[in-house]
């Protein structure tokens, strides 16, 4: 049975079994590979997307939960890397290997939507859901602060 939903403003549909993690549908069926697989267990945040504007781990979101919902992935955050977070990320040269960074940016974007001017403690608290094995944390904090300031 097909599940219908919206991804980055466009209609999408999948026949994947209801218990399938949305992550695999996004990456392997829709070929939106900016969303990454890191742990499959909700522990790393590499797969972070927005479901109806709220942060979600796509590895922990089942196909059965998304009928009629609106999904945003990193590819849909902005058409041309012009989101204030993306600009701040470049200015601070945050990415190293880059593998976690889609998830980091999507996570930060959800924070700024809810709290446009977060304190440092709020940033750290929120962003501790996302692992960066390259240890870019200090630059991430700086970039989120910058985006909040200049966004």
């Amino acid at each position: 049975m097909a599940t219908n939903f919206v991804v980055n403003g466009r209609r999408a549909s999948t026949d994947a079994p209801p218990a399938t993690p949305l992550l695999w549908v996004i990456r392997e069926q829709l070929k939106l590979t900016g969303t990454k697989f890191g742990c499959g267990t909700g522990l790393c945040g590499a797969c972070t997307i927005h479901v109806d504007g709220k942060r979600a781990f796509s590895c922990q979101t089942q196909v059965s939960e998304i009928a009629g919902k609106s999904i945003t992935t990193i590819e849909g955050l902005s058409p041309d890397s012009s989101h204030p977070l993306q600009k701040a990320w470049l200015a601070a040269q945050v990415p190293q290997c880059g593998y976690c960074q889609s998830g980091q940016i999507m996570s930060a974007a959800a924070l700024l939507k809810e709290v446009p001017k977060p304190t440092r403690a709020q940033i750290v608290d929120h962003m501790s859901a996302n692992i960066c094995r390259c240890g870019t944390y200090q630059r991430i904090v700086g970039a989120v602060e910058r985006a909040a300031r200049e966004g």
């Binding site: 939106l32 590979t33 900016g34 969303t35 992935t73 990193i74 590819e75 955050l77 902005s78 890397s81 993306q86 990320w89 470049l90 040269q93 945050v94 990415p95 880059g98 960074q101 889609s102 940016i105």
Partner: peptide, 8 residues
């Protein structure tokens, strides 16, 4: 490669 690491 950094610019491509902020947009997926």
């Amino acid at each position: 490669e950094v610019p491509e690491k902020v947009n997926g």
